[in-house]
Design a protein around this nucleic acid. Structure first.
Ligand SMILES: [Zn+2]
Ligand SMILES: [Zn+2]
Ligand SMILES: [Zn+2]
Ligand SMILES: [Zn+2]
Lengths: 129, 129
DNA sequence: TCACGAACGTTATATCATTACGTCCTTAAT
DNA sequence: ATTAAGGACGTAATGATATAACGTTCGTGA
């Protein structure tokens, strides 16, 4: 189930995301794929949907944009550190905090199915000055 | 700085949010405020902007919607448990996990300025069946 | 009274995302 | 080989979320 063959459009979208250290919006992707023949937003959104299902891309909710997955445990949540200066997005795992958050919510009866964790700030390079 | 007097539009928006256990979009709010004379999205967005500055409302990134703040420590991050069945949103603090996340990112040189933490799942009521 | 800044209202526009519909292609049963 | 079914596709239209631009009104204090 994990290793489905990608369609042409899915591969094109994934490649562009993998090439970028910043998150790209669907329309950013569309612009970069005009030369490949893509014409309409829905083509990009369909590819993103399929790639998301397979865990190959993530949506960054606070940016309405997307990144390629760096390859994490599919059963664990993904966190993102987002530099508001240069745009760089870094994916990370946070097993201890993930458990902490689930427990905290669980104590009030909440059953967590997925979580969004996005840190905004300055990356190592941009923080130096 | 914390206790500014609210304008009429700001108070109207805040009241509607405070009345709702679910997050409301700007357009939800606009619909509910037509009778009060509001006509355009920008009026709602301006009020939301000002209320956000004052820490009285929060944006739920994964819903493109807004909730009233339940009154938390302004220096701490706010987390949200969102029931995908009934829409109820509950704000919570998570000091231990907050520190954990900051440290984790900080270890790689990332300087965290704000964070988005949103749990999706089932509230206590909806989880029972 | 006047100058200033904050908030306002109106309109238009930008940005992000989905629905609807018909076509083409692969695959597998006949 | 024929054909039915499903999946992916392309095109067009639309829906949903958010901001820009502009001039006016209002409150406040010099
Ligand atoms: Zn990942
Ligand atoms: Zn940076
Ligand atoms: Zn709060
Ligand atoms: Zn519920």
């Amino acid at each position: 189930m994990t290793a489905r063959k990608l369609t042409r459009n899915q591969q094109l979208v994934l490649d562009r995301l993998a090439d970028s250290s910043a998150a790209l919006t669907a329309y950013d992707l569309l612009d970069r794929l005009r030369d490949e023949g893509l014409r309409a937003p829905v083509q990009v959104y369909r590819a993103l949907e399929a790639l998301g299902q397979q865990g190959l891309v993530h949506r960054i909710e606070s940016l309405n944009a997307f990144v390629a997955c760096c390859g994490h445990d599919p059963h664990a949540a993904a966190g993102f550190a987002i530099c508001d200066n240069c745009g760089e997005v870094t994916e990370f795992a946070f097993p201890a905090s993930e458990e902490g958050l689930k427990s905290l919510a669980g104590a009030k009866g909440f059953e967590t199915r997925r979580m969004t964790v996005e840190l905004h700030g300055r990356c190592a390079t941009c923080a130096e000055r």
